[in-house]
Design a protein around this nucleic acid. Structure first.
Lengths: 234, 234
DNA sequence: CGCTTGCTTGAACAGCATCAACCTTGGTGG
DNA sequence: CCACCAAGGTTGATGCTGTTCAAGCAAGCG
């Protein structure tokens, strides 16, 4: 994965340091909960394969998905800063993660200035994604929101070289996930997707997403193509 | 400000280091734009007094406020991570800020492990606030959202000892700001506030906010009182 | 004073939610 | 092999929540 152009290459010394800090790799099955809402965790993760999402819920069960996690994303920083995690992390697919003990975070800050900086970069980067989602949910119409989400997830998959020969990327979300991410009802999400399909701007078949007309979709979404800067991979 | 119990006290050595890194203090008038949307800034700020907000806008002018900034908040981390800032920061009141050059951030990471860790903590903390806002905008009703915002801002003011003898805190927002923060229209925000006022749970008079019945308001908002951990002040 | 900015209120409308079915698909076990 | 079931997707009808449009009002300020 480190060879992908999205990721900034690390020095050999940094890599070996990380090897020393990491506790190991672990595999989870689809649907598993990586971090429980309200629970304290003593570990941090980097997602190596698969997809997941962070979410918060209200007392009566209404759920809001905060963002989606893809390979290379760092999980658990927000959770760690004080005792317990205010939100949960759940897996959409089978996934493997790299596990770090929280003490490892401290070690990195003490001995690897650049890596520490990278972690802060990742935290800030994730906040920007959440910022973007908040703008969508607060100010975009249902159609714009759905379009935005599809583009956003497609671009991220693209940067991870997950596009297959037909131009489709993995898309393990149910319509309920889309609804929960966009602050919409399940039914309305379904009808909005249908409209976009009829417009010929998206195709969803057996867990894969294809965008036959990205330009048109971007116009629908009021989306501006910002080139994504190469990011660190911890 | 450092004497407030919300802020974790710093070592004398850390304080002197920060003194060396900071570029100075600066004063801005109400309504000024601290960071322009889409512009690159070479500085970071800590808000010392006054209030501000971060926001994003769509191409047709729809605006979403991402969060509000109060004394002690660190401004500009998200902006700095890659070239240009995707959102703006505007002042609600006259304000004074402490200015750091971006190189100073790097200096802190190299020489002050604990402070570097603190900065990351602040970034993660701010993301949690945005997370909370996203849950509100995505899944709460208009009344719940307004209630939530009032409680949240009141609590933050409280932790900064801004409550006066009548139990009121500064509240420099217009109804338009509230609407933009909650993803509501101005008119509906007005009517919702009116209902809360009639319920006797909030009072808004000449830029001040009072909550005569916090318990009732918290119930309306589906709010859980999480004690706020002492935070670092950079 | 007149002007601007922010607040207030009513009326009409629309976007999205809710309710209630029904359909399809893949997996399971008899 | 097929009956059954659960999960996810689809669709129409109805109505509430919140938007938009349109005024009018109050207060601060040149």
């Amino acid at each position: 994965m480190r060879k992908l152009p999205t990721f900034r290459p690390l020095e050999p010394e940094q890599l070996s340091f990380l090897e020393g800090v990491k506790r190991g790799e672990r595999r989870f099955e689809a649907g598993a909960t990586l971090i429980h809402e309200g629970a304290a965790s003593r570990e941090l993760y980097t997602l190596l394969s698969g997809m997941a999402f962070r979410y918060g819920t209200l007392s009566d069960g209404r759920r809001q998905i905060l963002n989606f996690l893809m390979p290379g994303d760092f999980v658990g920083l927000q959770e760690r800063v004080d005792g317990q995690s205010p939100h949960g992390v759940e897996l959409l697919t089978e996934a493997s993660v790299c596990v770090f003990p929280v003490e490892g975070l401290w070690e990195i800050f003490r001995h690897q200035t650049t890596l520490a900086f990278d972690i802060t970069w990742l935290a800030a980067h994730e906040e920007r994604i959440v910022d973007g989602n908040l703008v969508s949910v607060g100010r975009r119409t249902a159609t714009e929101r759905v379009a935005m989400l599809l583009i956003h997830l497609y671009k991220r998959s693209e940067s991870l070289r997950l596009v297959d020969e037909h131009g489709s990327v993995p898309f393990p979300l149910t319509q309920q996930h889309i609804a929960d991410a966009l602050g919409l009802s399940l039914v309305h999400t379904n009808k909005t997707l249908r409209r976009l399909r009829l417009l010929g701007v998206c195709e969803l078949r057996n867990q894969r997403l294809r965008l036959p007309n990205p330009r048109a979709l971007q116009q629908v979404a009021d989306y501006y193509d910002r080139p994504l800067a190469p990011r660190p991979l911890i």
